[in-house]
Write a protein that binds this DNA or RNA. Structure first.
Length: 855
RNA sequence: GGGCGGUUAGCUCAGUUGGUUAGAGCGCGUCGUUCACACCGACGAGGUCGGAGGUUCGAGUCCUCUACCGCCCACCA
């Protein structure tokens, strides 16, 4: 026990208690406890991108309040923390921060790169230095290590009750091993496969991307009206396109089967403008008669609909756009005419924008474009972090089956969502609509470097050709492996790339392919069966709604495959933090507020208070005013605790000593608050628990404490003992009710009079308040507070001090309420400085106050 | 085009199965330094609950339609 400071304050509580908690290990997971007594949390690993904004602090606080509640309910809380450091965001940061680019063909020993003394401040016009893959990965690891230290410091200051003995990174050895093991098992069960197919391709990052990473952006474009020529010479067919540069990739025209205008053309062929290639006119239900001229050109590949047509109508392939986003050097099959080849030569090597310009010039020359291009704005598909539109190119990639091509699997994943408890429930809609709209399997391979390698090698035949169907996979005991650095099992490194040798798969997995395994990574699946059995399936997945289609869905997929279960019982979905202008906070908008600055200014409890005011799933605006209120609440907790402990003197917390009806009434109401707060937290609604606790707390301070103040000073009497016991019982309850939200202030005041940490105490139970709470009449406190309020009002309206005596107070009210008032009359008289209190029966409350002479 | 969420005091939000005069905090105004708290307290003003219709003895709460805001999915020639 500690002494109570003369002037309690919030300053320094974070440092003091942070150290104590760490030293005492109060958040350590007790892994001796059986599964039924464990509460395990699949914390989102924050993307290590240099800084965390106040929105992150908000959602992590939500999780922490639940963790603290469950801990107080007696569960062994398994609360690990991870860092999402693998993947493209880190690569991009390394490229910009150090001014480098990865060239996999370089050797480590040849690198001439030196880490700049003052990184991050590259001179303008600096050209990226090419470095080897190995050195590039070193820089990635170095940068994320720095960030992870900063992140942990913030989380600790914020008071997250994480067990820091259990941390992981998505590029760490455990994550790599788990990712590769899960992948190999997917492969063995045919849940993963490789295919050479059209894929969404980001030309800047030079990698394939998944449907989930794609987003639409409104982009300027233009309709071009182009004339195709009927092969029988009977005239032209006019189509409209926004991508005339793909004309050379045209493989057919398509119209709706019921479209009378084009029905006669089905089965015939037309010749393309400029290139004079003969293409068929085909029918397909996806062609829309209302769009453009009602007939469209199919190119390989202009957009995802082209892919559908190409596949379903079994059209040939005429690829003209390369992986670098430029027109391929050699013309596609079928482009035979001299004029066509000459024109193609002029666009070869250009990027699509330049090529479009040249093609339009050609069309103008030949007169095959009707009128001028008509500018429009239309949605175009982009990689969510990309600068240029996606292209679709055919390439060999790895996929995991996610129901996108398979109704049975799709239904299985929809069923999983029904089994999951969603908080709030309507968030399930996002999952359902995403799964129902899937158009293909999940593409997991990326042509990048800082990720988990695909653990596969391919045999090279006697002629030196790679046979992608002749795979070599590692034994699970070898994991993790890096096929581009280690030889395939049974081979020697000298055989790499040689005839009768091997090559390694050079791709890495998408970051979601690893993140989707976080429940398996943190519970040490197949690595530590004991820990796994005690923590999996997990209890809670907290996450933001924007990544339901990625993280949540993909996690459900992987757990379904590996363990045949849901990965967790509850998904708690948090909203966004908006800036005060109701825009989503983001670094690019420059409106990010640093959480650490706010913690220093108002205290961690204040920031947590603001966070905990946002109900689960709802967006919330950042408001400095809310921090001030939280700070005020935390300070009030300190001050009222100090008063109560002083007023109680030597009294001990003995609820049976609570004999006064007003005291019993207060405890009865408090018991109701405990029940509500408990129910709210059981439903993950920290905001409701806080609201109820806070509302009662202010009534407790403003009314109850004022009412019993005088009586509590009459030491040595039963009346005083009753007040002291009730005050202490309420204090012990309130301090614990606040503990999950305001861990620092709660711990501070707890330490003034109790042993041990409040965070290891049991959550309050109404039964602790005993018979007084069970039998107390809630009305007594209400009526007493009402009358006290009326007296204050009279004094306030008379503009006199509250210390001014009221010579006579007449209370008119119902019999029941007057009866309740009588039980607290002496306290009301004392608190209101009332000389004479008179009651009269009436239908409703009215109070007449006669004031004495002021002064 | 399909769907989800929201709309309550100047601001931020509660309002749990429909039940008496719709709540809180902030802000604003007035008063007050009572021995926990001036990083304070007390009191007050302020809303026909987005709109229309319906069910009901009774609707902020249930139903239908509708407007606006935000978002998801689909489409995107």
């Amino acid at each position: 026990m500690a002494t109570i400071p003369d002037k309690p304050g919030l300053e320094g509580l974070e440092a003091t208690w942070g150290k104590r908690w760490e030293a005492d290990g109060i958040y350590r997971f007790d892994r001796a406890r059986p599964r039924a007594e464990v509460f395990s949390i699949d914390t989102p690993p924050p993307t290590v991108s240099g800084s965390l904004h106040v929105g992150s602090a908000c959602s992590y606080t939500h999780t922490d309040t639940v963790a603290r509640y469950q801990r107080m309910r007696g569960r062994a809380v398994y609360y690990p923390m991870g860092w999402d450091d693998n993947g493209l965001p880190t690569e991009r940061r390394v490229q910009n921060y150090f001014g480098v680019r990865c060239d996999p063909s370089r050797h480590y020993d040849d690198d001439e790169f030196e880490i700049p003394a003052k990184a991050g401040s590259l001179p303008s016009g600096h050209r990226a230095v090419a470095i080897s893959r190995k050195r590039f990965l070193e820089l990635c690891e170095r940068l994320v290590a720095e960030d992870e230290v900063k992140f942990e410091a913030l989380w600790r200051a914020l008071g997250l009750s994480v067990d820091w003995q259990y941390t992981y990174t998505t590029i760490g050895e455990g994550a790599r091993r788990t990712s590769q093991r899960a992948f190999l098992r997917n492969l063995a069960r045919d849940e993963a496969y490789q295919a050479d197919a059209p894929t969404l391709w980001d030309v800047d990052d030079q990698t394939a991307i998944a449907q989930a990473e794609m987003e639409d952006k409104e982009t300027p474009g233009a309709y071009h009206r182009l004339a195709f020529h009927r092969s029988d010479g009977s005239g032209d067919v006019i189509i409209e396109t926004t991508r005339p540069e793909l004309l050379a990739a045209c493989v057919a025209l398509v119209a709706h089967p019921d479209d009378e205008r084009y029905r006669p053309l089905f089965g015939t062929s037309v010749r393309t403008p400029l290139y004079d290639v003969e293409v068929p006119v085909v029918a397909h239900r996806l062609a829309e008669p209302e769009k453009g001229s009602g007939i469209a050109m199919i190119c390989t590949f202009g957009d995802v609909t082209d892919v559908t047509w190409w596949r379903e109508l079994q059209l040939p392939t005429r690829t003209i756009v390369g992986k670098d986003g430029r027109i391929l050097a050699s013309p596609p099959n079928g482009l035979a005419s001299d004029g066509g080849r000459a024109r193609y030569e002029e666009i070869a090597g250009k990027n699509v924008k330049q090529a479009q310009q040249r093609v339009v010039e050609h069309l103008a020359e030949t007169g095959e474009m009707l009128g001028e291009p008509r500018p429009i704005t239309h949605p175009v598909k982009f990689y969510e972090r990309g600068k240029r539109p996606l292209e679709i190119v055919a390439s060999r990639q790895w996929y995991i089956r996610n129901g996108g091509r398979d109704a049975e699997r799709r239904e299985a994943f929809l069923q999983r969502a029904r089994e999951l408890h969603w908080v709030p429930p309507y968030m399930k809609q996002r999952y359902d609509s995403w799964v129902e709209g899937l158009t293909g399997d999940w593409l997991i391979s990326r042509q990048r470097y800082f990720g988990v390698p695909i653990p596969v090698w391919y045999r090279v035949d006697g002629e030196g050709n790679v046979d992608h169907d002749d795979r070599v996979v590692p034994d699970e005991s070898m994991l993790p492996v890096d096929p581009s650095a280690e030889p395939a099992p049974g081979y020697d490194e000298s055989q790499r790339g040689k005839a009768n040798g091997f090559v390694g798969d050079g791709d890495v997995m998408d970051t979601w392919a690893t993140s989707s395994l976080t429940p398996l990574i943190v519970t040490a699946w197949a690595d530590d069966d004991d820990l796994f059995a005690r923590t999996y399936p997990m209890d809670m997945r907290p996450q933001a709604y924007e990544i339901i289609r990625t993280w949540l869905f993909s996690t459900v997929v992987r757990s379904h495959y590996e363990t045949g279960t849901l990965p967790w019982k509850h998904a708690a979905i948090s909203g966004w933090v908006l800036d005060p202008d109701r825009k989503k906070m983001s670094k690019s908008k420059g409106n990010v507020v640093g959480p650490m600055d706010w913690i220093e200014k108002y205290g961690a409890d204040a920031l947590r208070y603001w966070a905990a005011s946002a109900r689960p799933g709802t967006d919330t605006a950042f408001e400095e005013a809310q921090l001030k209120i939280g700070r005020k609440l935390a300070i009030k907790v300190l001050n009222v605790s100090k008063f109560v402990l002083n007023a109680a003197g030597d009294a001990t917390l003995e609820v049976d000593a609570v004999t006064n009806p007003l005291d019993q009434s207060m405890l009865a109401q408090l018991g109701g608050v405990v029940r509500e707060a408990t129910a709210a937290f059981d439903g993950f609604d920290y905001a409701r628990s806080l609201e109820r606790t806070e509302a009662f707390f202010w009534r407790f301070c403003d009314d109850y404490v004022e009412l019993v103040k005088t009586r509590s000073y009459q030491t040595g009497t039963d009346a005083s003992a009753s007040a002291a016991a009730a005050l202490l019982a309420a204090l012990a309850t309130l301090q614990r009710l606040f503990a999950p939200i305001l861990p620092y202030a709660s711990e501070e005041v707890w330490s003034w009079w109790r042993d041990g940490s409040v965070h290891c105490e049991s959550w309050p139970d109404p039964a602790e308040l005993g018979d007084p709470a069970a039998t107390g009449n809630p009305l007594v406190f209400d009526v007493a507070a009402d009358v006290l309020g009326a007296v204050r009002k009279a004094k306030s309206e008379a503009k006199v001090s509250l210390a001014t005596p009221a010579t006579r107070v007449v209370v008119r009210d119902t019999e029941a309420r007057l009866g309740a008032l009588a039980l607290a009359a002496s306290d009301v008289v004392a608190a209101g400085k009332i000389d004479e209190l008179v009651t009269e029966a009436a239908a409703e409350l009215s109070v007449t106050v006669t004031l004495g002479v002021a002064g």
